[in-house]
Nucleic acid binder design. Structure first.
Lengths: 211, 211
DNA sequence: GGAATTCCGGATCGATTAGTATAAAATTAA
DNA sequence: TTAATTTTATACTAATCGATCCGGAATTCC
């Protein structure tokens, strides 16, 4: 960016990626500046603040980076080239796959990286809550599409279905952290999708218990 | 306990309860000693350490207190006076109810209070992970009971069913924190239980999609 | 009334927190 | 070659972290 001046001695992009991994693993508050600077290439405090302004600004950048890379898996929920059912299933499976990969921290950064926050950093919590809300919106649109195109009956309780699948999706983060392997979650997703089929097959009747 | 000496000027039980609520809301690391002492009745540092030994020891006590009070809801999973299906359903509903109550922090302390931990406090994370594992064991026993007494067919993939229900259960914590009301989760549970009925009605066939 | 015991108020500990001030080093533009 | 610009290393800040020390206060036992 700058046309003159001493060149930066580290790669800003790589440093950001390293910081993202730390935030993902330990969360915003429990990741210290010293830890970050060490992982970002042993850069000095001066270099850090010159390049990233503050810990909070770095965190926001790290969240954006996560969303545009690992977090893209949830975009399957709004893939209109698939049936809504396939979009839902693919979004869940891809999320489970990504969250259980061992090449990076387990679980979802948007769910895990600001759970424990002191009161004065409530806005950090809110930041991630808003991002999760965006994903919920995509899930909602996915269900609405299903009702609109006849995959699910008009009588479908949309918000109920949204909460059902979203709650399972959120639970994957804790399960991944607890060491549950992909295959186990994948099998559970297969079974969970039977709910969709029950809904589509039996208009107006929510569960087989009532049939 | 002590027969002689100056009496304690605060109620240890009440102080512990107050500490538990703080840990529940903000987590182990993000709750400071100053914050704890203030909430525990403005007790001095000396009083704190005399009564509770250390922050970590207090946290362990707080976890035990949680388990024996708010956390008891999951014991429904091992209520053998109910059908396994009823035990599963009740455990989920009671957990959802408790976690969405506004008289205390939202979500589950065992899931939320040690998500963000610095590397040197990994054992705190492990502590809660072990507690979650206990609950998983109860869920597993619940499913095994169902297979043993014929509620679910012999062909049931037990670990798959365990992960399915447990993942949903874990997701409730994040949903509660994000403001999802009890009624919404409750409706989703009703639908989720249709999976159980599908499993019990169609031995060997996992989902209606395949029927 | 001691003596023994326990707790509390207040000062303080060393370590760590996020963040800054200063000046030298390294680059480009003229 | 010099001025302008930007990053660097080093030292440092004030605040907070969890935890401890000490002397006096409050209680029971004898």
């Amino acid at each position: 960016m700058p046309r003159t001046g001493r060149p930066r001695s580290f790669n800003r992009d790589e440093a950001l990626a390293a910081a993202m991994l730390l935030f993902w693993e330990y969360g915003f508050e429990s990741t210290s500046l010293a830890q970050l600077r060490a992982a970002m290439g042993d850069i000095s405090a001066a270099s850090f603040y010159a390049a990233f302004e503050s810990k909070e600004a770095l965190f926001r950048e790290a969240v954006d980076r996560y969303i545009s890379t690992y977090g893209h898996v949830t975009e399957s929920f709004r893939d209109t080239s698939l049936t809504s059912r396939a979009a839902m299933e693919l979004g869940l499976r891809q999320s489970a796959r990504m969250q259980t990969e061992t090449s990076h921290p387990l679980g979802c950064l948007l769910v895990l990286s600001a759970v424990n926050c002191s009161p004065e950093q409530q806005h950090i919590r809110d930041l991630l809550s808003k991002e999760r809300e965006r994903v919920r919106g995509w899930i909602k649109e996915c269900i609405e599409r299903a009702v609109a195109n006849g995959e699910l009956p008009e009588s479908t309780d949309i918000s109920m279905v949204v909460i059902l699948f979203e709650t399972f999706l959120r639970g994957i983060s804790t399960q991944a952290r607890d060491g549950v392997p992909y295959e186990a979650i994948d099998a559970a997703i297969t079974q969970l999708m039977s709910v969709w089929d029950a809904l589509s097959a039996k208009p107006g009747i929510r569960g087989m218990a009532e049939s």
